[in-house]
Protein backbone atom coordinates (compact mmCIF):
# COMPACT_ATOMS: atom_id res chain seq x y z
CA UNK A 1 0.00 0.00 0.00
CA UNK A 2 1.23 3.47 -0.93
CA UNK A 3 1.82 5.43 2.30
CA UNK A 4 -0.08 8.70 2.74
CA UNK A 5 2.81 10.29 4.60
CA UNK A 6 6.48 9.44 4.57
CA UNK A 7 8.99 11.36 6.68
CA UNK A 8 12.64 10.61 6.05
CA UNK A 9 15.47 11.66 8.38
CA UNK A 10 13.53 14.75 9.44
CA UNK A 11 15.43 17.21 11.62
CA UNK A 12 14.13 20.41 13.19
CA UNK A 13 16.70 22.40 15.17
CA UNK A 14 16.15 25.67 17.00
CA UNK A 15 19.26 27.82 17.37
CA UNK A 16 19.45 29.71 20.68
CA UNK A 17 21.69 32.55 21.77
CA UNK A 18 25.23 31.66 22.86
CA UNK A 19 25.51 29.24 19.92
CA UNK A 20 23.45 26.52 21.60
CA UNK A 21 21.11 24.41 19.48
CA UNK A 22 17.89 22.67 20.56
CA UNK A 23 17.69 19.41 18.64
CA UNK A 24 13.91 19.18 18.99
CA UNK A 25 13.48 16.59 16.22
CA UNK A 26 16.67 14.78 15.41
CA UNK A 27 16.39 12.35 12.53
CA UNK A 28 12.89 10.90 12.42
CA UNK A 29 11.59 8.36 9.89
CA UNK A 30 7.85 7.91 10.04
CA UNK A 31 5.30 6.36 7.70
CA UNK A 32 1.53 6.89 7.99
CA UNK A 33 -0.72 4.66 5.92
CA UNK A 34 -4.12 5.70 4.60
CA UNK A 35 -6.93 5.37 7.19
CA UNK A 36 -4.52 4.60 10.00
CA UNK A 37 -4.79 6.15 13.48
CA UNK A 38 -1.29 6.48 14.85
CA UNK A 39 -0.48 7.68 18.36
CA UNK A 40 2.68 9.72 18.88
CA UNK A 41 3.67 9.50 22.53
CA UNK A 42 6.50 10.60 24.75
CA UNK A 43 7.12 12.92 27.67
CA UNK A 44 6.86 16.68 27.35
CA UNK A 45 9.72 18.21 25.42
CA UNK A 46 10.57 15.09 23.41
CA UNK A 47 9.62 16.83 20.15
CA UNK A 48 6.07 15.64 19.44
CA UNK A 49 4.56 19.05 18.69
CA UNK A 50 7.57 20.11 16.66
CA UNK A 51 7.31 16.96 14.57
CA UNK A 52 3.56 17.43 14.12
CA UNK A 53 3.97 21.04 12.99
CA UNK A 54 6.87 20.17 10.73
CA UNK A 55 4.75 17.48 9.10
CA UNK A 56 2.16 20.10 8.11
CA UNK A 57 4.95 22.47 7.09
CA UNK A 58 3.95 24.92 9.80
CA UNK A 59 7.63 24.96 10.75
CA UNK A 60 10.66 24.88 8.46
CA UNK A 61 12.70 21.66 8.34
CA UNK A 62 16.38 21.80 9.14
CA UNK A 63 16.87 18.77 6.90
CA UNK A 64 15.06 15.67 5.68
CA UNK A 65 12.10 14.90 3.45
CA UNK A 66 8.34 14.79 3.88
CA UNK A 67 6.21 13.14 1.24
CA UNK A 68 2.44 13.58 1.28
CA UNK A 69 0.47 11.43 -1.14
CA UNK A 70 3.53 11.20 -3.37
CA UNK A 71 4.25 14.95 -3.30
CA UNK A 72 7.49 16.34 -1.82
CA UNK A 73 6.18 18.78 0.81
CA UNK A 74 9.73 19.64 1.80
CA UNK A 75 10.37 21.11 -1.67
CA UNK A 76 7.06 22.89 -2.25
CA UNK A 77 6.66 26.62 -1.77
CA UNK A 78 3.91 28.00 0.45
CA UNK A 79 1.74 28.78 -2.58
CA UNK A 80 2.24 25.27 -3.95
CA UNK A 81 1.22 23.82 -0.57
CA UNK A 82 -1.92 25.94 -0.23
CA UNK A 83 -4.15 23.71 -2.41
CA UNK A 84 -3.00 20.70 -0.36
CA UNK A 85 -3.97 22.33 2.95
CA UNK A 86 -7.60 21.22 2.79
CA UNK A 87 -6.32 17.64 2.83
CA UNK A 88 -4.20 18.09 5.97
CA UNK A 89 -5.77 19.70 9.01
CA UNK A 90 -4.81 20.18 12.61
CA UNK A 91 -6.58 20.18 15.99
CA UNK A 92 -4.81 21.91 18.87
CA UNK A 93 -4.82 21.44 22.63
CA UNK A 94 -6.41 24.82 23.23
CA UNK A 95 -9.18 25.31 20.66
CA UNK A 96 -9.74 28.90 21.85
CA UNK A 97 -6.30 29.81 20.59
CA UNK A 98 -7.37 28.79 17.09
CA UNK A 99 -10.95 30.13 17.24
CA UNK A 100 -11.49 33.84 16.67
CA UNK A 101 -13.43 34.95 19.80
CA UNK A 102 -15.41 37.55 17.85
CA UNK A 103 -16.61 35.17 15.16
CA UNK A 104 -19.88 33.29 15.45
CA UNK A 105 -19.44 29.52 15.30
CA UNK A 106 -21.26 29.46 11.96
CA UNK A 107 -18.56 31.67 10.47
CA UNK A 108 -15.76 29.76 12.16
CA UNK A 109 -16.98 26.62 10.43
CA UNK A 110 -17.97 28.03 7.05
CA UNK A 111 -14.72 29.93 6.63
CA UNK A 112 -12.59 26.93 5.66
CA UNK A 113 -15.31 25.82 3.23
CA UNK A 114 -15.26 29.19 1.52
CA UNK A 115 -11.47 29.53 1.55
CA UNK A 116 -11.11 26.20 -0.21
CA UNK A 117 -14.01 26.89 -2.58
CA UNK A 118 -16.11 24.00 -1.30
CA UNK A 119 -19.27 25.96 -0.50
CA UNK A 120 -20.37 29.54 0.03
CA UNK A 121 -23.08 31.66 1.57
CA UNK A 122 -26.17 29.85 2.76
CA UNK A 123 -24.90 26.53 1.54
CA UNK A 124 -21.72 26.86 3.62
CA UNK A 125 -23.80 27.86 6.65
CA UNK A 126 -25.98 24.78 6.23
CA UNK A 127 -22.95 22.55 5.97
CA UNK A 128 -21.60 24.17 9.10
CA UNK A 129 -24.82 23.19 10.87
CA UNK A 130 -24.44 19.59 9.75
CA UNK A 131 -20.82 19.59 10.94
CA UNK A 132 -21.93 20.74 14.38
CA UNK A 133 -24.47 17.94 14.54
CA UNK A 134 -21.83 15.49 13.39
CA UNK A 135 -19.61 16.35 16.36
CA UNK A 136 -22.44 16.07 18.87
CA UNK A 137 -23.55 19.72 19.06
CA UNK A 138 -26.62 21.34 17.54
CA UNK A 139 -27.18 23.53 14.49
CA UNK A 140 -28.83 26.00 16.90
CA UNK A 141 -25.32 26.79 18.12
CA UNK A 142 -24.30 28.41 14.82
CA UNK A 143 -25.09 31.90 16.09
CA UNK A 144 -23.15 31.61 19.33
CA UNK A 145 -19.62 32.72 20.13
CA UNK A 146 -16.74 30.45 21.27
CA UNK A 147 -16.77 31.70 24.88
CA UNK A 148 -20.34 30.43 25.32
CA UNK A 149 -19.12 26.83 25.19
CA UNK A 150 -17.48 24.53 27.75
CA UNK A 151 -13.97 23.16 27.22
CA UNK A 152 -15.24 19.88 25.81
CA UNK A 153 -17.70 21.62 23.49
CA UNK A 154 -14.99 23.95 22.19
CA UNK A 155 -12.83 21.01 21.35
CA UNK A 156 -15.78 19.54 19.43
CA UNK A 157 -15.93 22.81 17.49
CA UNK A 158 -12.18 22.63 16.86
CA UNK A 159 -12.66 19.14 15.46
CA UNK A 160 -15.65 20.22 13.35
CA UNK A 161 -13.54 22.98 11.84
CA UNK A 162 -10.68 20.60 11.11
CA UNK A 163 -12.89 18.04 9.36
CA UNK A 164 -14.91 20.66 7.42
CA UNK A 165 -12.76 20.22 4.33
CA UNK A 166 -12.84 16.41 4.59
CA UNK A 167 -9.08 16.11 5.04
CA UNK A 168 -7.20 12.89 4.41
CA UNK A 169 -4.84 13.63 7.28
CA UNK A 170 -5.82 14.97 10.68
CA UNK A 171 -3.05 15.89 13.09
CA UNK A 172 -4.37 16.29 16.64
CA UNK A 173 -1.87 17.73 19.14
CA UNK A 174 -2.89 16.86 22.72
CA UNK A 175 -6.53 17.68 21.86
CA UNK A 176 -7.83 16.40 25.20
CA UNK A 177 -4.94 17.04 27.60
CA UNK A 178 -6.64 20.08 29.13
CA UNK A 179 -9.98 18.32 29.64
CA UNK A 180 -11.28 16.29 32.57
CA UNK A 181 -11.13 12.51 32.18
CA UNK A 182 -14.83 11.86 31.64
CA UNK A 183 -15.00 14.47 28.86
CA UNK A 184 -11.71 13.26 27.45
CA UNK A 185 -13.11 9.78 26.84
CA UNK A 186 -16.07 11.23 24.90
CA UNK A 187 -13.81 13.23 22.60
CA UNK A 188 -11.64 10.16 22.03
CA UNK A 189 -14.71 8.17 21.01
CA UNK A 190 -15.71 10.95 18.61
CA UNK A 191 -12.27 11.02 16.98
CA UNK A 192 -12.29 7.27 16.58
CA UNK A 193 -15.74 7.34 14.98
CA UNK A 194 -14.86 10.14 12.58
CA UNK A 195 -11.65 8.42 11.59
CA UNK A 196 -13.51 5.24 10.61
CA UNK A 197 -16.40 6.99 8.93
CA UNK A 198 -14.26 9.38 6.88
CA UNK A 199 -11.35 7.02 6.28
CA UNK A 200 -9.01 9.65 7.66
CA UNK A 201 -5.44 9.13 8.68
CA UNK A 202 -4.94 10.49 12.19
CA UNK A 203 -1.70 11.39 13.88
CA UNK A 204 -2.75 11.67 17.51
CA UNK A 205 -0.12 13.39 19.62
CA UNK A 206 -0.36 12.82 23.36
CA UNK A 207 1.58 12.11 26.51
CA UNK A 208 -1.36 10.02 27.78
CA UNK A 209 -1.06 6.31 27.06
CA UNK A 210 -4.68 5.78 28.00
CA UNK A 211 -5.76 8.13 25.24
CA UNK A 212 -3.73 6.17 22.73
CA UNK A 213 -5.60 2.99 23.57
CA UNK A 214 -8.91 4.75 23.07
CA UNK A 215 -8.05 6.24 19.68
CA UNK A 216 -5.20 4.51 17.88
CA UNK A 217 -4.24 1.26 16.19
CA UNK A 218 -0.49 1.92 16.15
CA UNK A 219 1.84 3.77 18.50
CA UNK A 220 5.10 5.57 17.87
CA UNK A 221 7.20 6.37 20.93
CA UNK A 222 9.61 9.32 20.94
CA UNK A 223 12.44 10.10 23.33
CA UNK A 224 14.57 13.25 23.07
CA UNK A 225 13.84 13.97 19.41
CA UNK A 226 13.98 10.42 18.10
CA UNK A 227 11.57 7.57 17.47
CA UNK A 228 12.59 4.71 19.76
CA UNK A 229 9.77 2.27 19.04
CA UNK A 230 6.77 1.72 16.79
CA UNK A 231 4.22 -1.10 17.17
CA UNK A 232 0.53 -2.01 16.94
CA UNK A 233 -1.20 -0.77 20.11
CA UNK A 234 -1.90 -4.12 21.77
CA UNK A 235 1.57 -5.40 20.99
CA UNK A 236 3.21 -2.31 22.44
CA UNK A 237 1.28 -2.67 25.67
CA UNK A 238 1.94 -6.41 26.07
CA UNK A 239 5.46 -6.78 24.63
CA UNK A 240 7.31 -3.47 24.55
CA UNK A 241 10.77 -3.88 23.02
CA UNK A 242 12.45 -0.65 24.11
CA UNK A 243 13.46 -0.11 27.75
CA UNK A 244 12.05 3.42 27.56
CA UNK A 245 8.68 2.14 26.35
CA UNK A 246 8.71 -0.29 29.25
CA UNK A 247 9.43 2.59 31.63
CA UNK A 248 6.58 4.65 30.18
CA UNK A 249 4.17 1.73 30.59
CA UNK A 250 5.41 1.13 34.12
CA UNK A 251 4.76 4.79 34.93
CA UNK A 252 1.05 4.42 34.26
CA UNK A 253 -0.83 4.18 37.54
CA UNK A 254 -3.99 2.12 37.20
CA UNK A 255 -7.00 3.29 39.22
CA UNK A 256 -7.43 -0.16 40.78
CA UNK A 257 -5.33 -0.60 43.95
CA UNK A 258 -4.74 -4.29 43.15
CA UNK A 259 -3.10 -3.36 39.84
CA UNK A 260 -1.51 -0.12 40.99
CA UNK A 261 0.77 -1.95 43.41
CA UNK A 262 2.36 -4.21 40.76
CA UNK A 263 6.17 -4.22 40.48
CA UNK A 264 7.64 -1.63 38.11
CA UNK A 265 10.95 -0.89 36.45
CA UNK A 266 11.56 2.82 36.46
CA UNK A 267 14.36 4.90 35.01
CA UNK A 268 16.42 7.04 37.35
CA UNK A 269 16.91 10.78 37.06
CA UNK A 270 15.28 13.38 34.85
CA UNK A 271 15.02 13.61 31.08
CA UNK A 272 18.16 15.35 29.70
CA UNK A 273 17.62 18.58 27.75
CA UNK A 274 17.46 18.62 23.96
CA UNK A 275 20.43 21.01 24.01
CA UNK A 276 22.84 18.46 25.44
CA UNK A 277 21.72 15.18 23.92
CA UNK A 278 23.73 12.24 25.28
CA UNK A 279 25.97 10.52 22.70
CA UNK A 280 25.29 6.96 21.53
CA UNK A 281 21.85 5.80 22.60
CA UNK A 282 20.22 8.92 24.02
CA UNK A 283 18.46 6.87 26.72
CA UNK A 284 21.69 5.39 28.09
CA UNK A 285 21.96 7.88 30.98
CA UNK A 286 18.72 6.48 32.47
CA UNK A 287 18.55 2.95 31.07
CA UNK A 288 18.84 0.04 33.52
CA UNK A 289 20.20 -2.20 30.70
CA UNK A 290 22.86 0.14 29.29
CA UNK A 291 26.15 -1.45 28.18
CA UNK A 292 29.42 0.11 27.02
CA UNK A 293 28.30 -0.03 23.37
CA UNK A 294 25.22 2.08 24.19
CA UNK A 295 27.40 5.02 25.23
CA UNK A 296 29.09 5.30 21.86
CA UNK A 297 26.94 3.75 19.14
CA UNK A 298 23.51 5.11 18.26
CA UNK A 299 21.06 2.23 17.66
CA UNK A 300 19.10 2.46 14.36
CA UNK A 301 15.34 1.79 14.20
CA UNK A 302 14.97 -1.81 13.03
CA UNK A 303 12.29 -4.52 12.91
CA UNK A 304 11.68 -6.85 15.87
CA UNK A 305 8.68 -9.01 15.20
CA UNK A 306 5.44 -8.40 13.31
CA UNK A 307 4.94 -4.72 12.54
CA UNK A 308 7.19 -3.69 15.44
CA UNK A 309 10.35 -1.62 15.19
CA UNK A 310 12.80 -0.63 17.89
CA UNK A 311 15.94 1.48 18.23
CA UNK A 312 17.90 -0.43 20.88
CA UNK A 313 21.03 -2.60 20.86
CA UNK A 314 19.52 -4.94 23.42
CA UNK A 315 15.75 -5.00 22.90
CA UNK A 316 13.56 -6.57 25.59
CA UNK A 317 12.15 -9.00 23.01
CA UNK A 318 13.90 -10.55 20.01
CA UNK A 319 12.59 -11.80 16.66
Amino acid sequence: MQPLVEMRAVRVYFPLQRGEIVRAVDGVDLVLHPSEAVGLVGESGCGKSTLARALLRLLPLTSGEIWFDGQPLHRLSESEIRPLRRQMQMVFQDPMASLNPRMRIGHVLSEPLEVHGLARGRQAWQRAGRLLERVGLSADHLHRYPHEFSGGQRQRIGIARAIATQPRLLVADEPTSALDVSIRAQIHALLRELQREMNMTILFVTHDLHAVRQVCSRVVVMYLGKVVESAPVDQLFTTPAHPYTRALLDSVLEPKPSQARRPRSLPTGDVPTAIRVPPGCRFHTRCPYAQERCRVEEPPLQPVGEGQQVACHYPLISH
Binding site: E43, S44, H207, A247, L248, D250, S251, V252, L253, R264, L266, P267, T268, D270, V271
Partner: peptide, 8 residues
Protein backbone atom coordinates in the same frame (compact mmCIF):
# COMPACT_ATOMS: atom_id res chain seq x y z
CA UNK B 1 6.01 16.43 36.10
CA UNK B 2 6.97 13.98 33.37
CA UNK B 3 5.30 10.63 33.95
CA UNK B 4 8.55 8.77 34.46
CA UNK B 5 9.51 11.35 37.10
CA UNK B 6 6.08 11.38 38.80
CA UNK B 7 6.57 7.96 40.37
CA UNK B 8 10.04 8.82 41.64
Amino acid sequence: LDVTVQLQ
